[in-house]
Amino acid sequence: MHDLPILTLILFLSLLANYLCKKIQMPAVIGQMFIGIVFGPALFNIIKPSEFITIFAEIGVILLMFIAGLESNLSLLKKYFKPSMLVAIFGVIFPLIGMYLASYYHGLNVKDSMFVSVIFAATSVSISVEVLKEMGKLNSKEGITILGAAVADDVIAILLLSFASFFLGSQNSGSSNIVMVILLQILFFILVLMFIKFGAKLMLSLAYHFKINLTILSLAVCFLASYLAELCDLSSITGAFFAGIAISQTPFKKKIRRNTETIGYSLFIPIFFVNIGLSLQFNGIFNQLLLLTTITILSIFTKLFGAGLGAKLSGFSLNSSTIVGSGMVSRGEVALIIAQIGLSRHLISENYYSVIIAAVVITTFLSPFILRQSIVWKKRLSHHE
């Protein structure tokens, strides 16, 4: 129970951060990540990373992406499938090449440089989802494309991790059988499509008839889908997102979304954003400031340009392409997890681990500013036209 005072402090500070961010018209997620940086190991070290906080944070990001799925429009996701794929592909190619060249130029060996590029090829749109929700853009063509691209990006990132584990010589990788990984992921998506089309509506209709609590049942489906996604070497948030999509096809979605938002935003989701800030530590990075600066800047611009180019090739305007590219910049928990896996499998040297984590957190911290500003620019330009 010694973690309860820390939990209390996080919630109080999150309320204060939310209030101040509204006053200065900034996304609330920035204030929550700022709490983790200021009160975490990076500065005051009052709030320390722990298993207790990590569990709450993992639940938080699952609920956040479940809510995003509940609010998404399936017909729009189908409509923008092609742009999403192009955004994901170009948004992976540019960081892969750029981060590899930059890492190798700064003295990392081929193996370390390759894995750094894999880490920064990943995208986590949980931060972008929150900004898009706040600005009423989640169901815009840009928001839908970002969500679709994030799913494709997740699959690509996990396959890249599997290839890296196999070809860079890790013998204890659970993903070394790449064919099995691909087959499992195909099976997962087949089951998901069947549940979206047939299972969700039937299940909730029966539950409603027998007076079963629909929110609890939906949350159970969400967590099960997250678990199954992880079994298939996908991230848990992909499973949660598709569970939300399935529930959104039923007439009960508004009530379930309202109840889930109350649960998520009251406790778990703020802790997730604070926990990202807690990941930042300054130990060992001051001697490698040039490397940190280079990979941070490149991690932003390679995603922004690569994903934005994919949107532009799909027929989006320059402003819309910039929004899409900005929405794909955040690396968040996906990149942090890949980095941790790489360290445990000896795919990357410990000498560079702190710098990479710092670059991931800084990029994630800056991404809401970039996305929000790109949306504001588009609004201003549309008013002048």
Rank of each mutant, 00 (worst) to 15 (best):
S226P: 08
G239A: 11
S248K: 08
L228D: 02
I237P: 01
L228T: 09
F210L: 07
A246R: 02
L214R: 02
D233K: 13
I247M: 09
A207T: 01
S218R: 09
L234G: 09
V221E: 01
F210A: 00
L228G: 01
L206D: 01
Y208A: 12
I212K: 06
K255R: 13
L202M: 05
A246F: 08
I247S: 06
T238C: 05
L217I: 13
F242Q: 00
H209G: 01
M203T: 14
V221H: 03
K254F: 12
F210M: 07
S205D: 12
L202H: 02
L234N: 11
L202Q: 03
G244I: 04
S248G: 10
F241P: 04
I256R: 03
G244F: 06
F241R: 03
L231F: 14
A229I: 03
P251C: 05
F241T: 03
A246V: 04
Q249S: 13
E230C: 09
L224H: 04
A225G: 05
I216W: 12
S226N: 04
Q249G: 12
F252E: 08
C222K: 05
A200N: 03
T215Q: 07
E230F: 12
F252W: 08
T238N: 00
Y208H: 10
E230K: 15
A229K: 00
N213Y: 05
F241K: 02
T238P: 00
S236V: 12
K255Q: 13
T250N: 09
E230T: 15
F210K: 06
D233T: 12
M203I: 13
S236T: 14
V221C: 14
K201P: 01
L217S: 04
Y227D: 10
V221Y: 01
F242D: 02
C222S: 11
L224Q: 06
L217E: 06
H209C: 01
A207K: 01
G244H: 05
E230D: 15
K254E: 15
D233N: 15
K201V: 09
L204V: 07
L202R: 10
Y208S: 12
A200E: 07
T250F: 11
L224N: 05
G239N: 10
I237D: 04
S236H: 08
K255P: 00
N213D: 15
A240E: 07
A200P: 05
T250V: 08
R257L: 14
I256P: 08
Y208G: 01
D233G: 01
L224E: 09
F242H: 00
I245V: 15
A200M: 08
N213K: 08
A225F: 15
S218L: 14
S235Q: 13
Q249I: 05
L231E: 13
A240N: 06
I212G: 02
A229H: 03
S248D: 07
I256L: 08
T215P: 08
L224S: 13
C232Q: 06
A200Q: 04
A240Y: 06
F252S: 03
S236F: 14
I245P: 03
R257F: 09
